[in-house]
Amino acid sequence: MSVLIDIILAILAVYLALQSLLAPRLTQSVFLFFAFGLALALAWIRLGAVDVAITEAAIAAGFLGVLFLDALRDFSPRGSEKKENLEAVQNALPKNNTKSLLLPGMALMLGLGLFLLIALEAVWKIPDGGGLTAAAEALLPESGVEHPVTAVLLNFRAYDTWLEIGVILLGLLAVFAVGGIKIYRKPVMATQDPLLRQVILFFTPVLFLFGAFLLYIGKTGPGGAFQAAVLWGAIGILLHLGGRPVFSMIPRWLGQLLLTIGLGFFLILGFLFIAGGATLFEYPPAHAGVLILIVETMAAISIAAALTAIFANLNQMNEGPNEIESTN
């Protein structure tokens, strides 16, 4: 029975991915992509990787979904000049494609085939003991946390996690580079709709609490900085959509501090460890639990701020100066 569910899920995920790529309209592509993200999250749950499942659902269906919907609005009939742009782009596309479809197609097939072979070989080679699981669990008492995934992410492979936080910050910098920081500041305009305002007011503390819970529970079970950060980022996005752009309301230095504190605190801690005679990110076992919790909190704040800022920037980039009044 469970094999049947797995097979259906696997087929569904591949089918949705293909459909999302091949769908004739952008709207269909986007919504199929949401469905694909949810199918993937279910697949991760079936594989026992609940941490990855939560992240997948939050990032793919949540954050990416918001970004995609925002991009879709850009192509909707409302922005008439942009629609012309889109049509121009779409008209230009097939002409380029028809000529040299064969060669890229062959290259793609070759690459996919190679990838499939490598993936198959990797799966084949997984030892019976489950790879490094035993090694991670043996060192668990020294890591300061009780959940092996958190121990690996924040302790054994803390360097990777530190770089991941940096990658998100780099993404924000890329958005800045494309759009410029000038349009970052806009006059504050709270939403006029009473229901929307109440719902945002209600969901803000709930999301904050749930994020904090996920952050704290990461010590003993699935959860952690990235999952919490997406929920906290959702607060920022909700407030932004409700007409309270967080980054326009707080002083500039505070925004910059929030964005960089995760990366910075992690790095300072690492250097302190080096100064103390250990290697980079080698926590002293006695205080590892507390330190990991602090690092995770800082990381979650920074990631949430970065996600909010990415959305806020892209959102304001799309909105022409004249279109703001028409939305209400």
Binding site: D193, L196, F203, V206
Partner: peptide, 16 residues
């Protein structure tokens, strides 16, 4: 309860 709140709000917004 949360799904109820979110879905009815988004329904209202889409309808509006």
């Amino acid at each position: 309860l949360f799904t109820l709140l979110a879905s009815s709000t988004s329904c209202y917004l889409i309808a509006r």
